[in-house]
Amino acid sequence: MPDPSSSLSTVVSPDDAVEPRQRFSEVLSDLAGRSSPTISIGNVLDAFGDRAFGALMLLFAAPNVLPLPPGMSAVLGAPLLFITAQLMLGRSTLWMPHFIRERSISRDFFTLLTAKLSPTLHRAERFLRPRLGMLLHPLPERIVGAACLLLAIILFLPIPFGNIPPAFAIAAFALGILERDGLATLVGWLSAIGSLLILAAISSAILAGINAFFDQLWVILG
């Protein structure tokens, strides 16, 4: 007589097992390994699927942590305004107009960018894992989107040496969203606060310099 409990059990073959999702660095390497001469934003969106918010935030923010030619922070910061605004509004999927999806960079540059970012990403990914999920519920995530939108605006502005702190904060938030890691989100919040303090200090120094210049000018003219 067959054991009734046997009907309650299911044998799962290795082929039926769910494969773990690729890490961000692995998807980047796959994109860089394509034979096409260019990589478009649409290619990146399709590659990351439901993780597109975190992926594109990280892709556009992380390079700004590295030394870049003047003006590049504005070029990379502009798409972040579009992405982070949608995250703040609570969209479940990232929408991109056709003209932005078609924007592309050469595969050689994408490969170079991947090579520069990969060592840091590999080190970070060893520590990232799902935890502190309450920080990534829909409402907290929309607040993260609002913070990242403010940081993206700062990143977009031509502030000397002012792009690195907000870029680091957005990258930390993006890693938290990608890996559902609330600890990375906390790092993002701390970095965001630090970015605002640095911006305030830089702004005060610039204003003090302008005031000193005009004071000296009035002395000369007087």
Rank of each mutant, 00 (worst) to 15 (best):
M1I: 12
L8F: 14
S9L: 15
V12C: 03
A17N: 04
P20H: 04
Q22R: 14
R23M: 12
V27W: 01
V27C: 08
A32Q: 04
S36W: 09
T38P: 05
I39G: 07
G42I: 02
L45P: 02
G49Y: 05
D50G: 12
R51M: 06
M57L: 13
L58N: 01
L66P: 11
G71T: 08
L80R: 07
T84I: 07
L89F: 09
G90W: 03
S92V: 01
H98L: 10
R101K: 14
R107A: 03
D108I: 06
T111A: 05
L112G: 10
L113F: 03
T114N: 06
T114K: 10
T114G: 07
K116L: 07
K116D: 00
K116F: 00
K116P: 03
T120R: 05
H122F: 07
F127E: 01
G133F: 14
M134Y: 14
H137I: 07
E141Y: 08
I143G: 02
I143Q: 04
V144T: 07
A147W: 04
A152N: 05
I154R: 02
L157H: 10
P165I: 00
A167H: 11
A169M: 03
A171S: 14
L178V: 13
R180S: 14
G182M: 10
T185K: 09
I193F: 06
L199W: 03
A201T: 13
A201Q: 02
I202H: 00
I206S: 04
I210V: 02
F214T: 10
F214I: 11
D215F: 08
D215I: 13
Q216P: 02
I220F: 15
